[in-house]
Amino acid sequence: MMNLNEIGVKLHKTSKRVGRGIGSGKGKTAGRGVKGQKSRSGVSIKGYEGGQMPLFRRLPKRGFNAISKRANNLVINLNDLSKLIDKNKISIAEKLDLASLLFSKDKKNYKYVKVKILGTGEIKHKINILAHSASKSAKSKIESSGGSIEIVK
């Protein structure tokens, strides 16, 4: 088998060494032209379109998202509820609501406004829950275990 270097074929193209004298063809200004912002190092003009109105200023602004009006939902899965019951952090005797769930989950910041129950996991305990919303699977699993879920508006 013939070695490619023996017949004069280079496997890797060597990069042009700029700024190494006039004879190299890329000497003195190193192919950057003369003066100006682009000839300096570390300068790039990314959003500039040559005096034309930039695209991000031509497009209209759309919508408004008020941070204060967002509903903060405390989302709890059924497997989380069963773990809390097993650890005796929740008592099954009374109805579970937002305050009791926050207390059991050790959520010290009371930014949550609503409770949403999701159906991931299984629940074997008979529980009564007051929630603002719940998934269909969560409702069916709670009712099949003998408990009840009451949706509050």
Results as ranks from 00 to 15, higher is better:
residue 126 K to H: 06
residue 111 K to C: 03
residue 14 T to F: 09
residue 67 I to V: 10
residue 16 K to N: 14
residue 54 P to M: 11
residue 85 I to A: 12
residue 25 G to T: 12
residue 31 G to A: 07
residue 53 M to K: 07
residue 99 A to M: 06
residue 58 R to M: 15
residue 97 D to K: 03
residue 139 K to V: 03
residue 26 K to R: 10
residue 115 V to L: 06
residue 152 V to C: 01
residue 68 S to Q: 15
residue 94 E to Q: 09
residue 36 G to K: 10
residue 88 N to K: 13
residue 97 D to M: 01
residue 83 K to E: 08
residue 109 N to V: 11
residue 6 E to S: 14
residue 44 S to E: 14
residue 36 G to F: 11
residue 87 K to Y: 08
residue 8 G to L: 13
residue 32 R to T: 08
residue 111 K to M: 08
residue 72 N to L: 10
residue 32 R to A: 12
residue 125 H to Y: 03
residue 67 I to A: 08
residue 94 E to C: 04
residue 60 P to H: 04
residue 120 T to E: 12
residue 22 I to Y: 09
residue 132 H to S: 02
residue 86 D to F: 12
residue 44 S to N: 09
residue 73 N to S: 07
residue 19 G to K: 11
residue 36 G to L: 07
residue 146 G to A: 02
residue 91 S to M: 06
residue 102 L to H: 05
residue 50 G to E: 06
residue 67 I to T: 13
residue 37 Q to C: 05
residue 140 S to D: 06
residue 50 G to K: 02
residue 96 L to D: 03
residue 63 G to K: 11
residue 129 I to K: 02
residue 123 I to D: 00
residue 153 K to W: 01
residue 21 G to I: 02
residue 26 K to D: 07
residue 132 H to K: 01
residue 116 K to A: 04
residue 16 K to D: 13
residue 123 I to S: 01
residue 151 I to K: 06
residue 46 K to Q: 14
residue 31 G to D: 12
residue 18 V to P: 00
residue 121 G to P: 00
residue 46 K to R: 11
residue 35 K to L: 14
residue 93 A to Q: 14
residue 121 G to E: 06
residue 99 A to W: 07
residue 67 I to L: 14
residue 96 L to Q: 00
residue 115 V to G: 03
residue 150 E to G: 01
residue 66 A to R: 12
residue 63 G to C: 13
residue 18 V to E: 09
residue 98 L to H: 07
residue 150 E to Y: 10
